[in-house]
Design a protein around this nucleic acid. Structure first.
Lengths: 232, 232
DNA sequence: ACCTGAACACCGTTCAAGT
DNA sequence: ACCTGAACACCGTTCAAGT
């Protein structure tokens, strides 16, 4: 739940009063702000008002806004990736982990874009590690380990980013996400059939689809690909 | 090369002088700005200076900054997706199309993030359409068409987004991208071996890898998955 | 129809000054 | 060591006024 991005920050032995500012409290307030008003809602002014302090105080605890966003993202990802996953086989666990991330991003859409903007950072690494261990258990060849996790991770980040963009776009237009997708589908149906035959014919499926099911279908596609590489 | 995002904008019969403002000229200048100074470089002030006009003039031609970014993105994507692709079989063409997008994003990193932020919009649809047609040629079952393009597209967007984030992060630290990845690799090697065994052992591969090769490996993984679904 | 440019309502970040 | 809050250097966007 609480994650230090900086190190060497031990809070002595004596207990301070609840109101004291701390990275944890800042991150907590940031998450609340992000959840309620999206990525645009996280500003140092809104944050310092919520924490009854000035913007400068926050800068004492964290270096920049992007660090703050990554710290908030990491709090969610850590919580998600530390939770136990049901499933016995490596493939089942990978499916479970993937769905857990999907659901976390679904609940906190801003995590999708924050994750994509922090390459190589802790939040990404947590996912990389847990999926990687299962790939190893699956028996993926050593030289294939990196390209394989990398591919799975990219896919997950891609879906997460789309998810974030969809909800952002939707609430910009005052719609919920499924209404927004309905509208996209309607636009696609107006496209010139000679130029965009595939898009048109698939527009209906866009309308009736289930994001979560499609996401899992993609994971399964990749898992089948991994299997078929292993067995040759 | 030139794409109208608004409609009904015919420029009469008479030719205006070169200096006249137009969506095309604005998009062209935007691309130059984005290429030279990244996503942060595109501001209405810098743009209006370059075009020797005021910010208000630009707003007469385009509705908002995000529309402008999408229009610039679409100019690149359209050019990329309209180019002929070598390859005879559907799989070869999908590989070629994917590489073409990868290379375009590599050359214009900002396209990676612009693409991700424009769900359902024209740039994405261009990619969707061309890949979708090849999936159809491949014989993918009608009910699998949507989840399959969707998965390929998410993967491509995911890699593109990472690519964009890497170069953005790198130039923020005054490094080039491979030096930046070296640094990430060094950080990973410092992680606790008990908590992050996989990440540590894979850090070396991160250092010596080739983004483009890894990207293609992911595409091949998915293509194998598609094949194996078809043959059962 | 198209352009000008000042003005508005914000941002992230810094920093002297306080305790 | 930690906090305050004014100030700086920006943003995107609007809009009366011009041609």
């Amino acid at each position: 739940m609480s994650v230090k991005m900086k190190q060497g920050k031990k809070t002595g032995g004596t207990q301070r009063r609840e109101e004291t500012l701390s990275l944890d409290r800042i991150v907590e307030a940031s998450i609340a702000l992000l959840d309620s008003s999206g990525a645009k809602g996280l500003t140092f002014r809104a944050l310092s008002e919520r924490l009854a302090t000035g913007p400068g105080a926050i800068y004492w605890h964290i270096g920049s806004k992007s660090e703050l966003l990554t710290a908030a993202c990491d709090a969610i990802v850590a919580q998600t990736m530390n939770a136990p996953v049901e499933g016995k086989t490596p493939t089942a666990i990978i499916r479970g982990l993937s769905l857990a991330i999907f659901d976390a991003i679904d609940e906190h859409p801003w995590v999708g874009s924050a994750l994509a903007r922090a390459p190589g950072q802790l939040p990404m690494v947590r996912i990389l590690e847990r999926i990687g261990q299962q790939l190893r258990a699956l028996g993926v060849a050593a030289e294939d380990e990196w390209p394989t996790v990398s591919a799975l991770l990219s896919y997950i980040l891609g879906v997460g980013g789309q998810n974030a963009a969809n909800t952002h776009f939707a609430q910009e237009q005052g719609l919920d996400r499924s209404n927004f997708l309905d509208e996209v589908s309607a636009v696609w149906l107006q496209f010139n059939p000679d130029e965009y035959p595939f898009t048109r014919s698939v527009a209906g499926q866009l309308r009736s689809h289930d994001d979560r099911v499609d996401f899992l279908a993609g994971i399964d596609l990749m898992l089948r690909g991994i299997e078929s590489a292993r067995s040759r």
